[in-house]
Computed example of a mutant assay.
Amino acid sequence: MSSSATPWYIKGILYVALPAACIAALYLSIPGEVALARTAGWSEHYAPAMPICLSVYALSAGAIATYRRKMSLPGQVTALVGSLMALLLAMAAQSISHLIAQDYMGTSAALVVAVSCVPPLTIAHLVHMAETPTAVKTASQEIAELRDMNQALMTALVAAESRSLTSHASHVLVEVERLSETVEGLSEEAQEITEEIETSLKEETAPRPRRKALALTREKVEEVRRSLTAKGEKPTVEKVCGALGISQATYYRHLSAA
């Protein structure tokens, strides 16, 4: 079964061999870079700083360029260019110092100017590379900001939804109140109609006034007939009912009962 664990010898190379090689390379670069600094005019007191300026600068620029490329951070191109320039300067310093030491070439004004420009250029580029990452957010910071943005967005959505629900609830309450008023009005109208119907039914089912029933006797009818005859009119049922103020059906019903 295959395993993804790093073999022990690879770990040894990463944690032992590589640092040892870097230290050895820096150590070997010291004499040539110190000699080049002396050739350019630096004294014995300042010349030993040249290896740090060139070799450590090349190492730092390469590490920063690799880290930015791996993390997809801005400033990858400038860091890569700087690391290549630092490597070229370190290589050139070694080569030139050895050529001078072996009498293959001598110093010149151009060489002095070029070597004298190394420290300020190194400082400028290192400051540039050191300044850019400060503006870059770490993954934890971005996650925290995204979490805060998510919470703020959820809060805003909940607030907006709450306002919408509150508005809908207010409209529903207003509609319910209006419907309640309408129902109450209809109930009152229905009650009035019911009362009117009950009153009408009571009037229709109530017995006829006894006044007319009692007054409608044979004597009353005869009196009306005599009155009509005295006036020279024929005492028909129609005229008798008209004089009494009753219908013919009432006349026949009460007359037969009497």
Rank of each mutant, 00 (worst) to 15 (best):
E44V: 05
Y46S: 08
Y67C: 10
A61D: 03
A61N: 07
T39W: 05
A63S: 13
S72G: 09
A63I: 10
G62N: 12
S43G: 15
P74N: 06
P74T: 04
T66S: 09
V81D: 03
S55H: 01
I52L: 11
G75A: 07
C53Y: 01
L54M: 13
V77N: 11
T39G: 07
V77A: 14
P74Q: 03
R68E: 03
A79F: 02
H45T: 11
L73S: 04
A47P: 07
C53V: 13
P74A: 04
G75L: 04
P51S: 05
L59Y: 12
Y67R: 12
T66P: 00
C53I: 13
G62V: 12
A49W: 05
A49L: 14
P51Q: 06
S60K: 13
L73Y: 10
I64H: 06
V56T: 05
L59C: 10
G41R: 10
V81L: 12
G41L: 08
E44D: 15
G62T: 14
P51Y: 05
T78Y: 03
T78E: 14
M71A: 13
E44P: 02
S55T: 13
V77Y: 08
M50C: 02
T78P: 01
S43R: 02
A65H: 04
C53N: 14
P48D: 03
R68H: 02
S55D: 00
Y46R: 04
T78L: 09
C53T: 14
A40F: 09
H45G: 03
